Amino acid sequence: KWTITVQGEEAIKWAIKVAEARNLDYTVHIDGDQAHITIE
Rank of each mutant, 00 (worst) to 15 (best):
I37E: 00
A15R: 00
H36M: 12
T5D: 03
I4N: 00
E20P: 01
Q7S: 12
D33K: 07
K13W: 11
T3I: 12
G32W: 05
G8K: 02
I12K: 04
W14Y: 09
A21M: 12
I16D: 00
A21P: 00
E9G: 07
Q34V: 15
E9F: 12
T5K: 05
H36K: 11
T27Y: 09
I4Y: 10
E10C: 15
V6Q: 01
I37T: 00
E40P: 05
K13S: 07
V18H: 09
I16K: 03
I4M: 07
D31R: 08
K1G: 08
V6F: 06
T3H: 07
Y26V: 05
E10M: 11
E10A: 12
Q34H: 12
T27F: 08
E20I: 13
N23P: 06
E10I: 10
V6C: 11
A15D: 01
D31I: 13
Y26S: 01
V6H: 01
N23E: 08
I39N: 01
A15H: 05
Q7T: 13
H36F: 13
V28L: 11
T38R: 06
E40R: 14
V28T: 02
T3G: 03
A15N: 01
V18W: 15
I12D: 00
I16L: 09
A21K: 07
V18M: 14
K13Q: 11
W14R: 07
A19H: 02
I39L: 09
T3W: 08
A35R: 05
T5F: 09
W2N: 02
I12P: 00
H36D: 03
H29N: 08
D31E: 12
A11H: 06
D33I: 08
T5G: 02
T38K: 04
V18I: 13
K17L: 12
I12S: 01
G8S: 05
E20S: 07
N23F: 08
W2G: 01
T27A: 06
D33R: 06
A11F: 10
A15E: 02
T5H: 09
A21G: 06
G32V: 04
A35H: 04
Q34M: 14
I16M: 06
A19M: 15
A11W: 12
E10N: 09
I30V: 09
E40N: 14
I4W: 13
I30Y: 14
H29I: 15
H36Q: 10
I30H: 07
A15I: 14
T38N: 04
G8R: 03
A19W: 05
Y26T: 02
Y26P: 00
H36I: 15
E9H: 11
Q34G: 09
D31S: 09
K17N: 09
E20F: 06
T5L: 09
V28M: 08
Q7Y: 14
K13Y: 11
T3R: 09
E40Y: 15
K1S: 11
W14M: 09
D31V: 13
Q34K: 14
E9N: 07
K17E: 12
R22L: 15
V28R: 02
I37S: 01
Q7F: 14
D25K: 15
D25L: 15
Y26M: 03
W14Q: 06
E10F: 12
R22G: 12
E9Q: 11
T27Q: 07
I16W: 03
V28I: 14
I12T: 03
A21S: 12
I16V: 07
I37H: 00
A35W: 12
W14A: 07
E40S: 14
K17D: 07
D33Y: 07
V18E: 13
V6M: 05
K1R: 13
I4E: 00
T3V: 13
K13H: 06
H29M: 12
I12Y: 07
K17M: 13
G32F: 05
T3L: 08
I39F: 14
A11Q: 10
V18K: 05
K13V: 06
Q7L: 11
T3D: 02
W2Q: 02
A11R: 11
A11K: 08
H36R: 12
A19I: 15
I30Q: 06
I16Q: 03
E20N: 09
L24W: 15
K1F: 09
K17Q: 12
T27R: 08
I37M: 05
R22W: 15
D33L: 08
Y26F: 12
D25H: 15
E10S: 09
T27L: 05
Q7M: 13
L24E: 03
H36A: 06
D25P: 15
I30L: 11
A19D: 01
W14N: 06
K17A: 14
A35I: 11
W2R: 04
T3M: 10
W14D: 04
D33H: 08
K1M: 09
Q34R: 13
I37C: 04
I39K: 00
H29T: 13
T27N: 06
I12L: 13
V6A: 04
D25N: 14
G32M: 04
A21N: 10
W14P: 00
E20G: 05
K17S: 14
D31K: 08
E10K: 10
T38I: 13
D25A: 15
E9M: 12
A21C: 14
V18R: 06
Y26I: 10
L24C: 13
T5V: 12
Y26G: 01
L24P: 03
T5W: 10
K13E: 08
A21Q: 11
A21D: 13
W2H: 03
E40M: 14
I16S: 01
K1I: 08
I4K: 01
Q7N: 07
E9P: 10
V28K: 02
R22T: 14
A15C: 11
D33S: 09
I30G: 03
T3E: 05
A11P: 02
D31P: 01
I12M: 08
L24D: 03
G8M: 04
H36G: 03
E20L: 10
I12W: 07
Q34F: 15
W14T: 04
G32R: 04
E20K: 11
N23L: 08
G32P: 02
E20W: 09
I39G: 02
K17W: 13
K1W: 11
H36V: 14
I37L: 07
E20H: 06
I39M: 08
R22H: 15
A19K: 02
K13F: 08
V28G: 00
A15G: 02
G8A: 03
R22K: 12
E40W: 15
R22C: 15
E10R: 12
N23M: 10
L24S: 04
D25R: 15
V6R: 01
Y26W: 07
A15W: 15
I37D: 01
A21H: 07
G8F: 07
A19N: 01
E9K: 10
R22F: 15
E10Y: 10
A11G: 07
V28E: 01
E20C: 14
L24I: 06
H36P: 01
A35L: 07
D25I: 15
V28S: 02
K13I: 10
A21Y: 12
I37Q: 00
K13D: 04
K17P: 01
A15Q: 03
V18N: 07
H29V: 15
V28D: 00
W2I: 06
L24V: 05
I39P: 00
I16Y: 03
Q34D: 06
V18D: 08
E10G: 07
K17T: 09
T5I: 13
T38V: 12
H29P: 01
A21T: 10
A35F: 12
N23V: 03
T38W: 06
G32C: 07
I39R: 01
I39A: 02
T38C: 06
K1L: 07
E20D: 08
I16T: 04
D31M: 11
A11D: 04
I37G: 00
I30E: 03
A35E: 01
A15V: 14
H29G: 03
R22Y: 15
R22D: 06
G32E: 04
V6I: 10
E9S: 12
I30A: 04
Y26N: 00
I30R: 12
I30D: 03
A21I: 11
T27C: 09
I16E: 02
E40D: 11
N23A: 09
I16P: 00
V28Q: 02
V28A: 03
I39D: 00
A35M: 09
W14S: 04
I12N: 01
A11M: 12
E20A: 08
D25E: 13
I39E: 00
I12F: 08
E40V: 14
N23R: 10
V6D: 00
V6Y: 04
G8L: 05
L24M: 06
